[in-house]
Amino acid sequence: MTRHVDLPDTIPVFPLPGALLLPRARLPLHIFEPRYLTMLEDVLKTPARLIGMVQPCMVPGNGGNRLQQIGCAGRVTQFSETEDGRYMITLTGISRFRVRNEIEGFSPYRRCDVSWAGFEKDQGAEEHDPGLNRDGFMDLLSRFFQLRGLNADWGNLSDADDELMINSLSMMLDFAPEDKQALLEAPCLSTRRETLVTLIEYALRGGEHEETVQ
């Protein structure tokens, strides 16, 4: 379980298509743009050290300016500075949030008023998936990895706890941003696993990367 964090009403947000952070999981980030370097410096001065990961809405004519309604806030738990002034950081997922509105102002980075209501379990105990058929899931995953030409440490993966395995795969696998959003918004671990299985089965049927299947 991650440490309990007092959740503020306003947080800085980092819009990043395809990037997924989930509660109790860790996301490494490379910070180099000046506005996000400023954001990190400001965040490190706060008690909670929270950054909200949220995806832009990738819709025609939007230009990626609008944000998805739901994101996940992570606490900066590791950071190191390179010689040329960039940062390598790790965010540990604390809680999902719902965007109320974006704050207009002179900040070089984006900030939002957010609500944490409905996501109280995110700061609770690790989740388990009683409906998980691990052997069947691992067989499906093996076929998917073979399709994509991916390698895995199958021993560690098959021995991992339910939440670590399902959330790590949800974050790691290269699905479309809207699919990542669906994984984020899953109300519980079982639903996230069901969504993940649906996405993998869709890919195996040729729904994605058809050139690989052919």
Rank of each mutant, 00 (worst) to 15 (best):
R3G: 12
T10I: 15
I11R: 00
I11H: 03
P17W: 10
L20H: 00
L27H: 04
L27C: 04
L27F: 05
L29C: 08
H30E: 12
E33S: 09
P34S: 10
R35L: 10
R35E: 11
T38I: 13
K45Y: 11
T46Y: 09
Q55K: 00
C57A: 14
C57W: 09
I70K: 00
C72F: 04
T77I: 13
Q78D: 14
S80E: 15
D84H: 10
Y87W: 13
S95F: 02
V99R: 03
G105W: 01
Y109A: 05
Y109G: 01
R111W: 04
R111V: 02
V114T: 05
S115T: 03
K121D: 14
K121F: 11
H128W: 11
P130F: 08
L132T: 02
R134L: 08
L140W: 01
L140C: 08
L141I: 08
L141T: 02
S142V: 13
F144Y: 14
N151Y: 14
W154C: 10
G155K: 05
S158H: 00
D159W: 12
A160D: 11
S168W: 07
L169Y: 01
S170D: 03
K180T: 03
K180H: 01
A186R: 05
C188K: 12
C188F: 14
S190G: 15
S190E: 10
T191G: 11
R192M: 10
T195N: 11
V197P: 04
T198Q: 15
L199T: 08
A203K: 03
R205P: 09
E208Y: 06
E208F: 06
E211Y: 10
E211F: 14
T212G: 07
Q214G: 13
